[in-house]
Nucleic acid binder design. Structure first.
Lengths: 163, 163
DNA sequence: TATTGTTATACTCTATAACTATA
DNA sequence: TATAGTTATAGAGTATAACAATA
């Protein structure tokens, strides 16, 4: 399979073709299963909050990879739907403490289970070796695409706190 | 590397984490290089039109993976910016024939070159073997995630014109 | 003054439904 | 009637800039 000499440019071209495709596919799966009407960013936000009770808006935004205004809006919609609680921090009243509500927890667990199952179903068509390849590739991409400036400097050895 | 036994579910979980990250990264690279202000779908539309002069709206929409209304708007904005020409088909006046204008061609080639270079730069940090793994994984994902219904049926033998 | 959020604007993307015009 | 596109509507994501509250 792989093995051949693929330049970074060739790989880049392929990624730019495939990643948006996978993205849309995941979105479509979520919508078609009417996952409580959760979008991907909302979904990822809930997932993060499940593991980081009381996180601040900035922390969530950084992890999900969006700006503060975007995350503020996302949280706003989740709070409105009673999936997330948002309270002002006692220690630093500029911050908010975000947590999953009980319905929020139930929702995220069901949605995650469902969506993962759909994606897994698609992956089940791959061979064991292909799946291992995908897994390894995702880890590599995660390391390469996480953080990191658009270019230039990057002392870049800098550890990538793995969330 | 890979080699270990990863279940489809584990791989799915990782994909759901990494793919959105890569996606945002590409968007960010494009924006930070002020790629003529092209969004990813617009970009992909131009790329497709470069190889498919005179394609119809439906054809482009199918390839890019969006609905007709979305593509209609995307084309609208590209026509407004003089990057795409849209003329009614002579043979079937319900259809439109879409093509790149000269500025459109110049734009897409520069944008593609630039963006690929940025992505390639990130990939350059990977080992040769990792890159080969990524390449193979992308091909596998392309096959698994292209077309294919959310589940079930799929008479779908229908060939996938490989772009 | 610096930091944390929020609000305001303005686009783009997406989806559904209703509509036009062709066929 | 069926198909190709368009328009209308509505919601979500993103980005920038301006702003409030707190530190």
């Amino acid at each position: 399979m792989a093995g051949l000499a693929h330049s970074p440019l060739e790989a880049a071209a392929l990624i730019m073709d495939v990643v948006p495709l996978v993205m849309r596919r995941m979105r479509k799966e979520m919508r078609s299963r009417r996952m409580s009407g959760l979008s991907l960013p909302q979904f990822r936000t809930l997932i993060f909050l499940r593991r980081h009770e009381g996180a601040s808006l900035s922390q969530v935004a950084a992890h999900v990879g969006v700006g503060l205004p975007s995350m503020s809006k996302i949280i706003e919609s989740l709070v409105r739907r009673d999936l997330v609680t948002r309270v002002t921090s006692a220690s630093d009243r500029r911050c908010v403490n975000l947590s999953l509500s009980n319905p929020g927890l139930a929702t995220v667990e069901e949605a995650r289970r469902e969506t993962e199952a759909r994606v897994a179903e698609l992956l089940a068509e791959l061979s064991h070796q292909q799946r291992a390849e995908v897994y390894g590739a995702m880890q590599a991409l995660q390391a390469a695409f996480d953080g990191a400036e658009p270019l230039s400097k990057t002392p870049r050895g800098a550890a990538h706190a793995n969330h």
